[in-house]
Each structure stands twice: as C-alpha cells, then as structure tokens.
Design a protein around this nucleic acid. Structure first.
Lengths: 344, 344
DNA sequence: TTCGTGAGTGTTAACGTTCTCATGCCGGCC
DNA sequence: GGCCGGCATGAGAACGTTAACACTCACGAA
C-alpha cells in the first residue's frame, strides 16, 4: 500500500479511501491510485484490515454429513448467499455431533475470528452445545436439533402428513412407516406428522420401524413388510430408505404401485428415475442455506441474538411409486410430476 | 494478551512464548500464564498473528458441483486432512467453470490471504485459469482438467477398461457406452478406456452416446439402446446414468442382467440398492481430497511449485447388474460384492 | 472583510501478534 | 576471581490496514 501511495503520489490514507470507496476523493486522484494498484498488482491485506476493523467478514459453517445431498446443497446455498452478501465461508466438518466435537469446531472457527456460525444441526445435542458458544458470536442452526438458538428448518411434520394423506386419499386403509434414526429430530418430526395424519383420518397406527437413513435399512425393513400381505402403503423417512424398500418389494415379487405404494422424503435428483419413479416430498435445501444466512446477518447487523425459528414448507411431488389401494378406487385423482413419467 | 500478561505478572512476550510452545519458559511461569489465559477466557487473535507471520494457515477450495456425491466427498476428505495438518479451509463455490469465474474465485481466496488453493477441476478450462494464479500461491487441481498445475485424479481410463473387460469376459461381443459430457476430461478418459479395452479384445467399437451426467440422459439413451435387440451390454459414464438406463431397460421389458448387462462408474452409496444392484467402479473421493492436501503441503513446505500428477486406481465392484451374455457361458467366474446381494 | 463549511488530503495512532535484540542471572571453567 | 555461555525474561519495533483528527483550500453568507 505504501508503494501504491508513493507511485500515485498520495498518502497511504488516500489509497485506503479509494479502496473503501470513500466519496471524498477527487475522481482524478482515484484514477491515479487505481492505476498504481493495477501497475503493482496490489491486493489488500485482509489480516491487517480484520485486525483494525475487528470484522473478519468470515462466517463459519459446522458441517455434518456433507457427503449427503441435503447438507451438501445447504452448504452450497449458504456459500452463494454469503458471497453475495460479501462474506467468506470457512468450513469445519465434524464426524459426530456430540457436544465435544461441536464445541471443538466452534473453537476452531472462533480462532479464525469468524463473525457468526451456521451449524448443520440435525441432532439435539447441537443446540445445547451451540448455546455455550461465546456470547458475542452470532449463531444459527439448520435443522430440527438447534433448540436454544435461532433456527431454520423444514416443516418435516407437515411434509410427512402430506405424504401420508396422499396415501390415505388413494384408499389405503393405513400406512406403514420406515423412520430415520430416533435421535434425529427430523426423523421424529416426520414420524409425528405421519402419526397425526393417520389419527386425523381415523386410520390404525402401526408401530414405526426404526433404522438409519440408509438404503440398507430400507431394504431390511422392506423385506419384512413385503412378507406381510396386508401392507399396501409405505411412507419412508427419506429417499434412500425408499430405494431399499423398492428393491425389497421387487425381490419379493410385490408390484409397485399396483400392490404396494411407496413414498419417500427429500426428492434427491435421482428419485425420479427409481423403479418406479418415486413419489416423495421435496425439501429446498439450498433455500435452507440462504435463509440461514439471512438469519445470521440479521443478528450481525442488529447485534442482538434473536430467537427466531424459520420454518420452510416442503412440497409434495407425486410420481408413480404410489397408486390406489388394490381393488379400490382412489377417492381423489392425483396430478403426477410430468418430468419423470415416460413420454407417450 | 496484555491482560493475560498483567494477570500472570509477566510480559506479553512471555505469553506469546507460552502460546507458541517455546522451550525457554520455566514450567512454573508457563503454568501461571496458562491459568491466566483460562481465567480470562483468552483466545489468540489470528488476524494479528497472520499479519506478522505472513501465514494465514488457511487453504482455499474452489468447489464445483459440490451437491454431487463425488465433489462433496472430496471436500470432506480435504477438510479433515487439512484440520489434521493444522489448516483451515475456506470455500469458494463456482456455478460454472469458465475462466472468468474461476479467476474470480481465485481472487476472492487470495483476498483472504490463503496459502494455497485446491480446485475441483473437472474441466480443462480450470487448468489454464489456475496457471494464471499469482506466482507465490500453491495450487493443486483435483480431476482431469488441471493440465498446467499439479494434479490428483482417478485413473478413469483404467477404471473404464476394467468395466469393459469385465463385460467382454462375460461373453458380450461388444459394449455400448453412454458417456458423460464431452468437455469433461473424466468423461473423455472413461470413453478412451472403454474404447481401448474393446480394441484390445478385437471387439467392434460402437459410437459412444454423449449426454450430461444425469439419470435423465441415461434414461433417454437407454430407451434407444433398449429398442435395439443386439445390445447386450452397456457401460455408463456414471451411476446416475446407469440408473436412468436401468429404468429404460425395465420399461422396455428387457431384463437386467439376463438380457442386458449394465455397469456404472463412481459407486455412489445407493448403487448397491438399485434394481438390480449395480456393478460399478468405485472412486475413493475422500482419498482424492486427502492426497490433494498432501500435494499442496508438499509445495508449501518446499516452496517450489511441483508438477506432480498423482493418479489413484479405482476399484471394480461386481454386483448383479452384469451377467453372462445371453445364450453364452461366461469365460470367467465373477466374485460379487457380498454386501448388496440378498442374504440366503 | 470575516467567518463558517465542506471537500480533499495528510499525519498519527491504534489493532494484537511475533521477531529481534538486550538484559540479568546462574553455573562451570580456566 | 573473572569470563563465558546458556537460560529465562523483557523492551521495542515491526506487520498493513483503518479511524480520528488536523490541515488547507475554495466558496458563499453575514
């Protein structure tokens, strides 16, 4: 910067003013400074800037399971939004969500003097850990597990209810449920939504089947369900589970959707090409990332830690893995997603 | 830091020594300083540190398509490795890989004074853009597109050859190929491997079919291939394409693997649960991330820009979507992946 | 004229570290 | 007894930026 100032024949302060777009610089001077910067290939030193302004313009992301489509999309949405708002994003992955590793990640991010932290927080342990973050730090949780901090999440319960009602409307007397792991609030909320929809319709409520989020779990439970001839409809905690269930039903010789209907959750990009194309519930993960940034910036600018909870409504996507209950007419016609139905 | 020094009754310099584990501090003094740091909940200011040491301990990642399983896993592997080596990772996503947006991302990362950059670089434009990065900056590309910079990549060609040979060994007279987009070196390399394997076996080489990486592309091409009764084996550029192809074959009533064999590439976590479970080629994406860090650190420590090219050999995974050519015995028995074959 | 105002610029002092050099002390050696 | 060397510590100067304030004009109003 000193060199730039010298070359442009001004003081370093004027260079700084040009750098920060201060109005009180003569256009002619500004141009001279800019030329000098170009000539010297000058880049401002953000460390010095951070030191004196006490603003790093960096946000931290505590990332969990980012190899999955959902968290990966959230990360992407967050980064794009952060960039647009002039922030950088630094990532701290955690292998598990226990208090210790979350606090460790918070510590690492603090050491980088991030101004705020977004945590992908699908387990309740995260909320309590995050609540212990240093006082001055803005924090936002994404997902159901951030109980003591501002949060952005999908309304899992209503999404699950949509899926369940869809199946009931098709004439199924009840709906089985292969759920995600019990320590994930998202899984619990989906199970709740499913249960309430059954209740509301006066349908019997079978015991939900617990697993992890994997296709393997869907396959294992699917084999058991396939063996039960009374089962005609299955709501799966996510699309991977649904994929496993589809395979199990196929191997058991039970046709989907003629004999059994299957509905997933998430709408991963491939689900329109499952066999058959999967009826599911779409989450807008990227929007989740964008909204979490909004919430963070809101806190950053106001300086107070809000306790807002933003909830996004998912969208039901009907494809061909769900159909009328065997030997029964559907009570309502269903509009299918045109994109994944085979042409003509 | 001044407060810590005062509380411990030492100079700021001694605090700094404790912080950096200098040997020449009396254990008793060190303990007193540590106690003071705990009492004041002191965290060192990394901006000041960066300013004076000229080392940010931060690495930049230029991320492309990180919602896909591969890049997302690479990001994860890189972050874990970086943390272990004491580096932070800052992410700059790009929407497209043209020169301009890559250089923009490089600029953003430089502004943060990263010490090195890893770029997920599956298009050749990245290599040329990266070569223009400021001279002092260490750079590593991941994937086939980083031609003028040190690179870590999968040996796509040999992976494709494995898949093709597997099908030829099963007695298929030739193998069709649904390729990824032509401007991706990974797609080109896989096509090359496939072509060479056919050549080597003296098999006819059909025209490869170009698409993007999506299940939709696999479905569209799959419909055409399914209509051709002479087609008995298809090698797909990735697992999503294979998924689409499987659906098309199923809808056309062509049984897999009895009538047509299908092989994918990548081994995404779900591919073992496709219908039928997909024979594919596994890439170790996380290892890709780890290796790229190694290469970066190697440059950082030596101070010279190497031009090494690390190539990782993928692993062939046989499942049930591939089988002997119709009305023919396989020339070699195939060991299946036990995990995804139905028990008993 | 005289004063105030505001635009354009420069001067100086932070910010919180680490680095370099200086100091004092202790033990061992000639 | 004096000198040397190493250990433990401290003082002060960087690092590159921005904030606060001061200064000099030019201009218009009192």
């Amino acid at each position: 910067m000193r060199d730039v100032a010298r070359l442009a024949g001004v003081s370093h302060q004027t260079v700084s003013r040009v750098l920060n777009n201060h109005p009180n610089v003569r256009p002619e001077t500004r141009e001279r400074v800019l030329a000098a910067m170009r000539a010297l290939n000058y880049r401002r030193n953000s460390a010095a800037r951070t030191l004196v302004t006490r603003r790093s313009r960096t946000l931290g992301l505590i990332a969990y399971e980012t190899t999955l489509f959902g968290p990966a999309s959230t990360l992407y949405g967050l980064e794009q939004a952060a960039r647009a708002a002039g922030y950088f994003v630094s990532v701290a992955s955690v292998r598990t969500l226990d208090r210790e590793s979350v606090l460790d990640a918070v510590g690492r991010l603090c050491e980088q003097s991030v101004e705020g932290i977004v945590a992908i927080a699908p387990q309740s342990s995260v909320g309590t850990a995050l609540a212990q973050a240093p006082a001055g730090l803005a924090v936002v949780g994404v997902g159901g597990g951030a109980e003591h901090v501002p949060t952005v999440c999908i309304d899992n319960s209503s999404g699950a209810a949509m899926a369940t009602r869809h199946l009931l409307d098709l004439g199924h007397t009840t709906v089985q449920h292969i759920a995600g792991p019990a320590d994930w609030p998202e899984a619990r909320d989906r199970t709740d939504g499913w249960r309430e929809a059954l209740h509301a319709a006066g349908a019997p409520v079978p015991a939900p089947r617990l697993g992890d989020w994997s296709a393997r779990a869907g396959y294992e439970h699917g084999r058991l369900l396939a063996a039960d001839p009374t089962v005609t409809a299955i709501f799966c905690g996510n699309d991977q589970i649904a994929l496993g269930a589809l395979r199990a039903l196929h191997e058991a010789g039970r046709r989907v959707p003629d004999e059994v209907s299957v509905v997933g959750f998430d709408d991963v990009p491939e689900s329109g090409y499952f066999l058959p194309p999967l009826t599911t519930v779409r989450q807008d993960f990227a929007e989740l990332g964008r909204r979490s940034l909004d919430l963070l910036i809101e806190q950053l600018e106001s300086g107070v830690r809000t306790n807002r909870r933003v909830s996004l409504t998912p969208r039901f996507v009907a494809r061909t893995s769900s159909g009328p209950a065997p030997a029964q007419r559907p009570s309502r016609p269903v509009r299918r997603d045109p994109e994944c139905v085979p042409p003509d």
